Simulated scan of single mutants.
Amino acid sequence: MEGVTADYTVEGMVCQHCASSVTEAITSLGGVRDVTVEVQSGRVSVNSDEALDEVQLAKVLDDIGYEFARSA
């Protein structure tokens, strides 16, 4: 089973530390297999067992100071 890959836009990232924080927060969500972050573009690609709940995703990002902009 390959899982589901979805791309999102996250605003507020400016450095590699930001990327690490975002990766850690998203990985804490159940079923997440892999997270790839591009700081400059704000693009975040997530591979998970099933589609993520975008409300839950927005909350974990907001909790660490970043803004979930939209699915890319």
Score class of each variant (00 low, 15 high):
A25W: 05
A25S: 12
A25K: 00
I26D: 11
I26K: 06
I26R: 05
T27R: 14
S28M: 10
S28A: 15
L29H: 03
L29W: 03
L29D: 06
L29Y: 08
L29V: 04
G31A: 10
V32K: 08
R33K: 15
D34E: 15
V35L: 09
V35C: 11
T36Y: 07
T36L: 12
V37F: 10
V37A: 10
V37L: 08
V37E: 09
V37P: 09
E38R: 11
E38H: 14
E38I: 10
V39K: 04
Q40C: 06
Q40K: 14
S41W: 03
S41M: 05
G42A: 03
G42P: 04
G42I: 02
R43E: 09
V44P: 05
S45H: 01
S45G: 06
S45A: 14
S45Q: 12
S45R: 12
S45K: 10
V46D: 03
V46Y: 09
V46A: 07
N47L: 12
N47V: 11
N47K: 14
D49Y: 02
D49I: 08
D49F: 04
D49G: 11
D49W: 00
D49C: 02
A51T: 13
A51I: 05
A51K: 13
A51Y: 06
A51V: 12
L52K: 05
L52W: 03
L52H: 08
L52Q: 00
L52P: 01
D53R: 03
D53T: 01
D53P: 05
D53N: 14
E54M: 03
V55Q: 13
V55I: 11
Q56V: 12
Q56S: 12
Q56L: 11
Q56C: 02
Q56Y: 05
Q56F: 00
Q56E: 15
L57H: 06
A58C: 04
A58T: 02
K59Y: 00
